[in-house]
């Protein structure tokens, strides 16, 4: 597994289509040969967590679901918007408050994306500025 912390953020849309994915660890941009197997494992854990999210949506009226699933050291926290878009964050033990603040800020960014007339809902978010902004949020809220 890659050295250092794990921090992957995905947005999953309707019918469980991933529409956005970002590795938010600070070294992510530098490391060229990332450990592929770790990446697959992360994807797998996130995918598996979707079932847990689906169950927990109905147990609360909050959009923030806190930690929904874990696998060894990997934890998955989730936030589900009113339109059932799922924000998932794979991490290794960040504080709940920080994650909550992170999701809240990301939601704002996501809203801006949705309001863009050129964005088709439930399609891949490709805008580089969104990547940058989410990375900046991760830096301030999660100290990544």
């Amino acid at each position: 597994m890659a050295a250092g912390s794990v921090l992957t953020f995905v947005i999953v849309g309707r019918d469980d289509h991933p529409i956005f994915e970002a590795d938010l660890t600070s070294k992510a941009s530098e490391v060229v040969n990332r450990d592929d197997r770790a990446q697959y494992l992360h994807q797998f854990v996130l995918h598996a967590a979707l079932d847990a999210v689906d169950e927990q949506i109905w147990t609360t009226t909050n959009m923030h679901l806190a930690q929904v699933d874990n696998f060894n050291q990997l934890r998955v926290s989730a936030y589900v918007t009113a339109a059932q878009m799922k924000f998932l964050l794979l991490h290794d033990g960040k504080s709940e408050d920080a994650i909550k603040a992170f999701f809240k800020d990301v939601y704002e960014v996501y809203l801006k994306v949705m309001m863009n007339p050129f964005f088709t809902p439930n399609t891949q978010i490709t805008s580089p500025s969104v990547h940058q902004r989410i990375r900046a949020i991760a830096k301030t809220q999660l100290k990544a």
Binding site: K112, M115, N116, P117, F118, F119, S127, S129
Partner: peptide, 9 residues
Amino acid sequence: DFVELPEGC
């Protein structure tokens, strides 16, 4: 407000 031009536009 909110607008970001896609590539090709």
